[in-house]
Amino acid sequence: MFFIKRIILFLSIVLIVASCVSNKKIAYLQNDIINQEAVSNIYNTVFKPDDLLQISVISDDVEASIPFNLPTVSVSTNTANVIGQPQQIPYLVDSKGEIDFPVLGSIKVAGKTREEVIQFLKNKLSPKYLKNSTINIRITNFKVNVLGDVARPGAYTIPNERVTIFDALSLAGDLNISGRRDNVLITREEDGLKKEYRVDLRSKNLYTSPVFYLQQNDNIYVEHNYARIQSASSNSNTSLFISITGLLITIVSLITR
């Protein structure tokens, strides 16, 4: 009887320990010391095929600038008080990484940063067509995909191109308690190739990662932890077995009193 009691006590302790989740497994940025010299707040948006670019050109001569701006159209909104909102037609970056720009024709933009494209356009327009030109470029379909063990997985379109991995996870409602913080996967297209990065959200070294600042169409995947996977793979027979085992332990404990 004493041996049976010891087994019951041992099983009870195991169940209690298994039900506890260590804070070390879920707290963000708890490990490592930040290397401030390796941290950079500089981020560069690199244009890619399928980007929609809104490019506006202005100069001292308003009339001369008109041919270099696509027409503005009225688009519907979800706001009850607004029927339509003026918006400039965007340029589509084609599969070759080019846009068809007025007067200048096809321009290669894929693989270039915003600053590089702006400087290129200024060099082409000034002084032959425009003087003292100002050019603004923004991506209108900047989005990231957040998948896996998060509260609200999905695709998120973001108006601000300066987006960190924490911004994206916040939009998705943060990780569930069963999501792995130590092995988050980010996939990105670079130079026509798919690249994978693994990051640990618990480490301050995340600040120095090349994927801390996201790029358009990045995919973030949060893996389920072992307990969640085991729970998903269990079936009704497993649940029945656990119930019977619990009942037997209860009966034995009553008999041995």
Rank of each mutant, 00 (worst) to 15 (best):
I4Q: 13
K5E: 11
R6V: 06
L11Y: 06
S12Q: 10
I16N: 04
V17E: 04
C20D: 00
C20R: 00
S22T: 09
K24P: 00
N31W: 01
N31Q: 13
I33G: 00
I34S: 02
N35L: 01
N35M: 00
N35A: 02
E37T: 07
S40A: 01
S40P: 04
K48T: 06
P49F: 04
D51N: 14
L52Q: 04
L52K: 08
Q54R: 11
S56Y: 08
S59Y: 02
S59V: 02
D60T: 09
D61V: 05
V62Y: 09
S65W: 05
F68P: 08
V73W: 00
S74R: 08
S76I: 04
S76V: 11
T77V: 14
T77G: 10
T79K: 08
N81A: 10
Q87P: 00
I89K: 10
I89S: 06
Y91W: 14
L92E: 11
S95I: 03
D100Q: 11
L104M: 11
S106K: 14
I107D: 09
K108M: 10
K112D: 12
T113Q: 06
V117S: 12
I118H: 09
Q119V: 13
Q119K: 15
F120L: 15
Y129N: 07
N132W: 01
S133R: 02
I135W: 07
N136C: 03
I139R: 05
T140C: 03
T140G: 03
F142H: 08
V144S: 07
V144K: 13
T157L: 09
N160L: 00
R162H: 10
R162C: 03
R162W: 01
V163S: 02
L171Y: 15
L171C: 06
A172S: 09
G173H: 11
D182L: 10
D182K: 11
I186P: 01
I186T: 05
E189L: 11
E190V: 15
E190G: 09
E190H: 03
L193H: 06
K194I: 12
K195S: 06
E196Y: 02
R198D: 05
D200P: 00
Y207I: 04
P210C: 01
Y213G: 08
Y213W: 05
Y213R: 08
L214V: 05
Y221C: 03
Y226G: 11
R228C: 12
S231I: 02
A232S: 12
S233R: 14
S233L: 14
S234N: 07
N237F: 15
N237C: 10
S239W: 15
L240S: 14
I242C: 03
S243R: 08
I244T: 13
I244H: 14
G246C: 09
G246R: 05
T250N: 10
V252A: 12
S253E: 09
R257G: 15
